[in-house]
């Protein structure tokens, strides 16, 4: 089960609202093997699209370098859906390539860029198989 700080959840929601109607994306990294998300990094959606996201390859390399130096890994990959539910799309599943990561989805479909209800769900995606998981917010 994913354990995640309230501040990180709030930051993901704020990021998703700020980029609505385009999809927002980012990561929370932590010590390798810890399953503990410590440091949130907003990533650029290179596609700036309401239906697709892709990390900018040069920004992703910079992130990789930082993590390699600090012996960190990606613990959470988050992105938003802006018109559909917070469930992995076929595209999400086909691209999912971080078996150790929690895939966290934020849907802004109901309230858009405004304050209001958002849907938050967390998944594992391994070998094309999606498994929803509970998550615990740490206050």
């Amino acid at each position: 089960m994913l354990k995640i700080d309230r501040s990180h959840v709030d930051a993901m929601i704020a990021h998703a609202r700020a980029d609505h109607p385009d999809e927002a994306c980012g990561v929370i990294v932590g010590p390798a093997g810890s399953d503990d998300p410590v440091r949130l990094i907003q990533m650029i959606n290179a596609d700036r699209s309401p239906t697709f996201f892709r990390f900018d390859p040069s920004e992703q390399l910079k992130l990789y370098r930082e993590m390699d130096d600090a012996d960190e890994e990606i613990i959470v990959i988050y992105h938003s859906h802006t018109a559909t539910e917070a469930y992995p799309s076929r595209t999400d599943i086909s691209y999912a390539a971080e078996p150790q990561a929690h895939y966290f989805l934020v849907s802004t479909a109901e309230s858009g860029a405004d304050e209001g209800p958002v849907e938050l769900r967390s998944f594992r995606i391994v070998d094309g198989v999606v498994t929803e998981e509970d998550f615990e917010i740490r206050e």
Partner: peptide, 10 residues
């Protein structure tokens, strides 16, 4: 040489 899977989706 660094190989990184694209992080992407829809």
């Amino acid at each position: 040489v660094v190989v990184l899977p694209a992080v992407a989706g829809g």
